[in-house]
């Protein structure tokens, strides 16, 4: 179990306790957090669960894989901290993770 903070574009913060093995996308969807659409259901096939990982967590979270990287290109607000949250899986190393949600998902 690890703690995740989702910071919405409007400044609101959502806190979730996420079971190890579940993705950060699932943490948002299961708790009804707005701002993560996850249209493809976590198959790394769209870019609608885009998040920006907080600077201090980027090393722990790591870089996107090849397919994820291509899909992130679809996201209008992509930057170096961008990841698809369906590809970030909770583990003890990520307890306390903070992610920023973009203005909208494309």
């Amino acid at each position: 179990m690890g703690h995740v903070t989702y910071l919405a574009h409007d400044g609101r913060a959502y806190e979730v306790e996420l079971e190890d093995g579940l993705s950060v996308m699932e943490g948002a969807v299961r708790n009804g957090i707005p701002g993560i659409d996850a249209d493809c259901g976590g198959m790394c096939a769209c870019a609608t669960c885009h998040v920006h990982v907080a600077d201090e967590w980027r090393a722990a979270v790591g870089n996107p894989g090849e397919q994820e990287d291509e899909l992130l290109e679809l996201a209008p607000e992509r930057d170096d901290a961008s990841r698809l949250s369906c590809q970030i899986v909770m583990s003890p190393q990520l307890d306390g993770l903070v992610v920023h949600m973009p203005e909208s998902q494309h």
Binding site: D37, A38, D39, C40, G41, M43, A45, C46, A47, T48, E70, L71, E73, L74, S104, H106
Partner: peptide, 17 residues
């Protein structure tokens, strides 16, 4: 939102929103 009308992958509909 779980539908396949916009396609998936790199050619996913650019104008969906």
């Amino acid at each position: 939102r779980q539908h396949i009308s916009f396609g998936f992958g790199i050619h996913r509909c650019v104008g969906n929103r």
